[in-house]
């Protein structure tokens, strides 16, 4: 319920932030056309409503947003919501697979490292996490393409599906999954490292708690202590972090989508920023914020299952 005012506040802030940037869509369009007169530019501004003072523009935009109308992209000559929803599924797919991979493997690796504390396995995982944490995303993406697409023709270099093949049904799913592998791995490596380190630290912290001594005093096996007692408590901070990071993930996807020409929101946002297509950009931001709020809600619900001390109101 508190999500609605938060989203509205985000819309207003985004609006002013984006308007801080020099130039507008008309400048860019005129620049590309190469021969626009000032009178013609004024006319275009009037047509797009860009001649109004900022507060009026904001009011108009807010009114439209409340009516679920995200406006019109003059650049693409399409309603914003059509453009966004087209690309939204691609980004959602990429994000979902990334989160599953990063959180899932992060938890497993962190657990494994904590159980084998101070052995070569732990050291190996820590070094791996450090390296992936420190490597820039775009470089990983490019190296992935070079190694797995160019040297060994295992995966496609770019795109989301082979549109020339006109696959249908299950073949199409397989094709998309095939295209999904490299972008997902690239985007998840960084977060994988993060969750591995967090999980390891969290496990070690929980091992030091009193209830672990109690569990040992009850004569339980170490296996049971690790998987039943410690694991569930150790998951809590990792889940919280994962929820918070969904927002950051959208940011990271801009880079990965550019490198792999993945037709998602990140690419769209990147293009529309340079075209000063503010309506489109605002729409993308709005959708992202809705997504982040929604994911946090889901995390809250998961939290209630993991931690009985928290109640859903």
């Amino acid at each position: 319920m508190q999500g609605i005012p938060i989203i509205l506040a985000i819309v207003v802030m985004n609006f002013f932030l984006l308007n801080l940037a020099e130039g507008d869509a008309v400048d860019v369009l005129a620049g590309e056309a190469g021969s626009a007169t000032p009178e013609y530019m004024e006319k275009m501004r009037a047509k797009f409503g860009l001649d109004q003072p900022l507060p009026v523009q904001l009011a108009v935009y807010l009114k439209n947003v409340v009516q679920l109308d995200l406006g019109y992209s003059f650049r693409h000559e399409m309603p914003v919501h059509e453009l966004i929803f087209d690309r939204f599924w691609a980004t959602l797919l990429l994000m979902t697979s990334t989160i599953i991979l990063a959180v899932g493997f992060g938890i497993l690796l962190g657990l494994f490292a904590a159980v084998n504390l101070n052995t070569w396995k732990d050291a190996l995982i820590s070094v791996f996490a450090l390296i992936t944490y420190a490597t820039p995303l775009f470089w990983v993406g490019l190296m992935m393409i070079i190694v797995f697409s160019i040297k060994n023709d295992w995966f496609p270099t770019s795109g989301m599906e082979n549109s020339a093949a006109f696959y249908e049904g299950f073949d199409r799913v397989k094709d998309i999954a095939h295209h999904l592998v490299l972008p997902t791995i690239t985007l998840s490596l960084f977060y994988l490292a993060l969750y591995t380190r967090m999980m390891r630290a969290s496990m070690l912290e929980q091992y030091g708690q009193d209830y672990v001594v109690t569990a040992r005093a009850k004569g339980l096996s170490e296996r049971r202590i690790t998987f039943v007692h410690v694991l569930r408590n150790a998951l809590l901070p990792v889940v919280t972090m994962a929820g918070v990071q969904v927002g950051a993930l959208i940011g990271g996807s801009v880079i990965v989508e550019s490198v792999f020409a993945w037709p998602g929101l990140g690419m769209l946002a990147f293009e529309s920023l340079f075209a000063r297509d503010l309506n489109l950009l605002l729409g993308i931001f709005l959708l992202s914020s809705v997504l982040v709020v929604a994911v946090n809600l889901v995390v809250d619900v998961i939290y209630c299952f993991l931690d009985p001390r928290i109640e859903v109101n």
Binding site: Y211, V213, A215, V228, H229, R232, N233, L306, D307, P308
Partner: peptide, 17 residues
């Protein structure tokens, strides 16, 4: 041989019944 501890809050696992 069994044992009970000083701090009953932390000596029980908070997420298990």
């Amino acid at each position: 041989i069994s044992m009970i501890f000083q701090e009953p809050m932390t000596a029980l696992n908070p997420v298990m019944t």
